[in-house]
Lab assay of single mutants.
Amino acid sequence: NRHQFAPGTFSGVLQCLVCDKTLLGKESLQCSNCNANVHKGCKDAAPACT
């Protein structure tokens, strides 16, 4: 399954699913299917969408 990433819209601090570093809103993407949160630069390394 493929992620459907869109710019993240969340408040607070989240961790990137891929690199475990802190996500800030402006550099984040969120999958509309599984709600995975990743950095824009990490999206290609994200595991399959669940």
Rank of each mutant, 00 (worst) to 15 (best):
Gly8Phe: 07
Cys42Thr: 02
Lys40Leu: 13
Ser28Gln: 08
Cys42Ala: 02
Asn35Leu: 05
Thr22Ser: 10
Gly8Cys: 07
Val18Lys: 05
Asp20Tyr: 05
Gly8His: 09
Gly8Tyr: 06
Val13Met: 14
Lys26Arg: 08
Ala6His: 10
Val13Lys: 15
Asp20Val: 04
Ser28Phe: 07
Pro47Ser: 14
Cys16Asp: 03
Ala45Ile: 15
Leu23Cys: 10
Ser11Asn: 15
Gly8Val: 05
Ala48Lys: 12
Ser28Cys: 08
Lys21Leu: 11
Ala48Trp: 06
Val38Cys: 15
Arg2Pro: 05
Arg2Gly: 01
Ser32Met: 07
Cys49Tyr: 03
Cys19Glu: 01
Gln4Arg: 13
Val38Asn: 02
His39Phe: 01
Asn33Phe: 05
Val38His: 01
Lys21Arg: 05
Asn1Pro: 02
Cys31Met: 00
Gly25Gln: 12
Pro47His: 07
Cys31Leu: 01
Ala6Arg: 15
Thr22Trp: 04
Lys26Pro: 12
Ser32Asp: 08
Cys31Gln: 01
Ala46Met: 13
Lys26Tyr: 06
Phe5Met: 11
Ala36His: 11
Ala6Gly: 13
Ser11Arg: 06
His39Arg: 01
Phe10Met: 14
Ala45Gly: 13
Pro47Thr: 10
Cys31Phe: 01
Lys21Val: 09
Thr50Pro: 05
Gly41Phe: 08
Thr9Pro: 01
Ala46Ser: 11
Lys26Thr: 15
Gly25Ser: 13
Gly12Leu: 04
Cys34Ile: 02
Pro7Gly: 04
Leu17Phe: 09
Pro47Ala: 09
Gly41Ala: 11
Gln15Ser: 05
Pro47Trp: 09
Ser28Arg: 04
Leu23Thr: 04
Ala36Cys: 11
Gly41Glu: 15
Lys43His: 05
Lys21Cys: 06
Phe5Val: 02
Thr22Asn: 14
Gly12Asp: 14
Leu29Gly: 03
Ala46Val: 14
Val13Asp: 15
Ser32Tyr: 08
Ala36Ser: 08
Cys16Asn: 00
Glu27Ala: 02
Val18Glu: 05
Asn35Arg: 10
Thr22Asp: 15
Gly12Val: 04
Leu24Asn: 15
Ala36Asp: 03
Phe5Pro: 03
Gly25Thr: 11
Leu17Ile: 09
Phe5Tyr: 05
Arg2Met: 15
Leu24Met: 07
Ala45Trp: 09
Leu17Thr: 11
Asn37Glu: 06
Asp20Phe: 02
Phe5Arg: 02
Ala45Phe: 13
Ala45Leu: 12
Leu24Pro: 14
Ala48Cys: 07
Lys40Cys: 14
Gln30Pro: 03
Gly12Pro: 02
Ser11Cys: 05
Ala45Cys: 11
Asp44Trp: 05
Lys21Asn: 06
Pro47Glu: 10
Asp20His: 05
Cys34Gly: 01
Cys31Gly: 01
Gln30Asp: 09
Leu23Ala: 13
Glu27His: 00
Lys43Tyr: 09
Asn35Trp: 04
Ala46Leu: 13
Leu14Ile: 14
Ala36Met: 10
Cys31Arg: 01
Val18Arg: 08
Thr50Asn: 05
Thr22Met: 08
Cys49His: 02
Ser32Leu: 07
Cys19Ile: 00
His39Tyr: 00
Phe10Val: 12
Gly12Phe: 02
Ala6Lys: 15
Leu29Ser: 09
Leu24Ser: 14
Pro7Arg: 03
Pro7Asn: 04
Lys40Asp: 15
Gly8Ser: 12
Ala36Thr: 11
Val18Gly: 11
Cys31Val: 01
Val38Ser: 05
Cys49Ser: 05
Gly25Asn: 07
Pro47Leu: 10
Pro7Ser: 07
Gln30His: 08
Val13Trp: 09
Thr22Glu: 13
Pro47Phe: 11
Cys34Ala: 00
Phe5Glu: 01
Glu27Trp: 02
Arg2Ile: 15
Asn33His: 09
Lys21Gln: 15
Cys31Thr: 02
Arg2Thr: 12
Ser32Lys: 14
Asn1Cys: 05
His3Val: 02
Cys19Phe: 00
His3Ala: 03
Asp44Arg: 09
Gly8Arg: 03
Thr9Phe: 03
Phe10Ser: 14
Ala45Gln: 13
Gln4Ser: 06
Leu24Glu: 14
Gly41His: 06
Lys40Pro: 15
Asn35Gly: 10
Gly25Cys: 08
Gln4Glu: 10
Cys16Gln: 01
Ala45Tyr: 07
Arg2Leu: 08
Lys40Gly: 14
Lys26Phe: 07
Gly8Trp: 02
Cys34Val: 01
Lys43Ile: 12
Cys42Tyr: 01
Pro7Trp: 02
Gly25Trp: 03
Ala36Asn: 08
Asp20Ile: 03
Ala36Pro: 01
Thr9Asn: 11
Lys26Trp: 04
Gly8Glu: 06
Ser11His: 13
Asn37Leu: 10
Lys43Glu: 14
Val13Ile: 14
Leu17Asn: 08
Cys19Lys: 00
Asn37Ile: 06
His39Gly: 03
Ala46Asn: 07
Cys42Leu: 02
Glu27Gln: 03
Ala46Trp: 05
Ala6Phe: 10
Gly25Leu: 05
Thr9Asp: 11
Asp20Gln: 07
His3Cys: 07
Glu27Asp: 06
Asp20Ala: 06
Asn37Gly: 11
Thr22Leu: 04
Ala6Pro: 02
Pro47Asn: 11
Ala36Arg: 14
Ser11Gly: 13
Cys34Met: 00
Ala45His: 13
His39Asn: 01
Phe10Arg: 08
Gly8Ile: 03
Asp44Thr: 13
Ala48Gly: 12
Thr22Cys: 07
Lys40Gln: 13
